[in-house]
Design a protein around this nucleic acid. Sequence first.
DNA 1: CGGCTTTGACCGGCGC
DNA 2: GCGCCGGTCAAAGCCG
Length: 323
Amino acid sequence: MDSEWVNTSLGLNVIPFHPASYDQAPVKKQLELEGDYTKVFEGHASVKQEAAASHVLTEELNRISLENKKLTEMLASLCENYTNLQSHVKELMITKQQSSDQNDLATNFNKKRKPDSEDYSNMIGLTSTETSSISDEEYGCKRPKENMNLKISRVYVRTEASDTRLIVKDGYQWRKYGQKVTRDNPSPRAYYKCSFAPSCQVKKKVQKSAENPCVLVATYEGEHNHMHPETRAEVTLIGSISPNQQLSPLSPSMPKRTSPVPTFSCDKNNNLSPREIEGAPPAFQQFLVQQMASSLTKDPNFASALAAAMSGRFSDHSRMGNW
DNA sequence: CGGCTTTGACCGGCGC
DNA sequence: GCGCCGGTCAAAGCCG
């Protein structure tokens, strides 16, 4: 990730230009009071009032600018750390690839078909879930032509050795379409498609590691072209409690899913249901996402909550020494 | 009744 | 061309 991609102007606590429902903004209240005051005492007092108001505004602006700057710096350092970490992981993987290639040459190990030859040496410090993105070249072996431009990533999940369920909970909704016992592994491999198929073509294979039955290996092919269901649920809920919108009723019969997602129907305010949004053209979906993002960033409550959450998370991470 | 899982059949790529 | 193998399909069954 490049820090330049990130628009750091979150507009946190920025004084709203649309006074619709921001009664809680102290500056605005003060200005309103002052406005009433100046109506009564016009004349010399108004100059003082204006000066005081502009002073308050300037102070507030300075404070916000400082806050924004701080957040920008934090974000920049976060991006830098991320980039460093990513390049370090890449280096490790390349080193490992080279050493395994040398081993292969030395032992003249001939494998007819081994596109999924697994290497768990990068599971250093694995706790619950460890992800590694692998490009097609790094993936090493031949892939079908149509999958050459697919992004392939792996997730290793620690599980009970006795647990025969091939389930990796990643928040997305998957539909199982096959299971197969492969030659090189006594444990069966489960095949999943994203439940938003055919609009989302992401596939997932889940199989226990042949070497370590305590580890589930989930191989993802492709990238989701929709929001993470949990994120989407949160956004939908946040949106639904805004004063301008009416709460849409939850569907009474929630379908069985690996991760529950509230389903909303189109109500009298013409709020779209997820199904309609999914069926909409990509450009319209993009527009909806932008609308949601802009309405959220304009909301001072959301902005301050986000700032608080971010600062809390940063302090948590710095305490844990993960940076 | 709709959606999900299971599982045997089928298909296509690859090596010989 | 044949056999092996991984991946996918689709009918049947299950479940809430």
